[in-house]
């Protein structure tokens, strides 16, 4: 198999944390602006302009923050699993740095999805917590995040921690569909009865366009956050190199 030359060049450049640090710097303000604008538009539209749901009334407006955070929680774990594969197969240092930077961000989005889900559950289901299939899978996802973060914190040497976390992330990634299907199946066995959020009649555009906007906004902010955190990890890990020391000297003289 032959890859196009620019792709191969990009792949080789990704091996250099310094290249990453310098290339991503100009992207950041754009991503941040884009994220804030999209999310702001989505939230305003969702909160003020979209019609109320005929069943749930206004509490359905929580969807515009709940669904994006749940999507991000899962995407972030996929990102970490892929970084794990890249790290173990190609030993790319940058993959480990992304893995370290993304874990707390993913965990925070998972917790946010759980919290907003619980608040939404109160007016909709009449209870803060129900062992619904998606709630349960999300809770288990949070445990997987906490496990990776705990392992990284416990292992002192960054190299050992990175590769160990990579193995764990891959094992988790393989397990996520299995966990999801088993939980789904378990709860259909116990017929989740009265609570049903899944039966959405097709949403009118005035409801789903703001959702799309806010999902995209969340993505932009997430990417901004991961890039920015990864840049800090790059600085910390490469602190013995000349370019980081020059960068620090320049920053220090600015302050």
């Amino acid at each position: 198999m032959k890859f196009p030359a620019p792709l191969v060049r990009l792949w080789h450049r990704l091996g250099s944390p310094r290249w990453f640090f310098e290339t991503t710097a100009p992207w950041l303000p754009w991503l941040l602006g884009l994220g804030v604008a999209l999310l702001g538009a989505g939230a305003f539209w969702g909160l003020a302009l979209a019609p109320a749901d005929y069943l749930q009334g206004n509490s359905f407006r929580i969807i515009y923050v709940h669904v994006p955070s749940a999507i991000l929680a899962q995407s972030c774990y996929m990102l970490m699993g892929s970084c794990g594969v890249v790290l173990l197969v190609w030993r790319m240092k940058l993959a480990d740095m992304v893995l370290e930077a993304a874990a707390p961000i993913g965990a925070s989005f998972t917790a946010l999805a759980l919290a907003t889900g619980a608040v939404w559950g109160k007016p909709t289901w009449g209870t803060w917590w129900a062992w619904d299939a998606r709630v349960t899978s999300m809770l288990i996802l949070l445990f997987l995040y906490l496990g990776i973060m705990g392992l990284r914190q416990a292992l002192q040497r960054p190299e050992a921690a990175g590769r160990a976390c990579a193995i764990l992330a891959i094992v988790g990634l393989v397990n996520i569909p299995i966990i999801k299907y088993s939980v789904d199946w378990w709860l259909t066995l116990h017929q989740p009865s009265t609570f049903k959020l899944t039966e959405k009649p097709a949403m009118p555009p005035s409801m789903w366009i703001p959702l799309l906007l806010s999902v995209l906004g969340f993505y932009a902010l997430f990417i901004w956050s991961v890039l920015q955190s990864t840049r800090v990890v790059v600085l910390e890990r490469e602190r013995r190199t000349q370019w980081v020391q020059n960068f620090v000297a320049a920053e220090g003289s600015k302050a």
Partner: peptide
């Protein structure tokens, strides 16, 4: 009537 729930969620976010 759902104000606290909706605004609570957006605040948390």
């Amino acid at each position: 009537g759902h104000g606290p729930y909706v605004w609570g969620c957006y605040g948390l976010t």
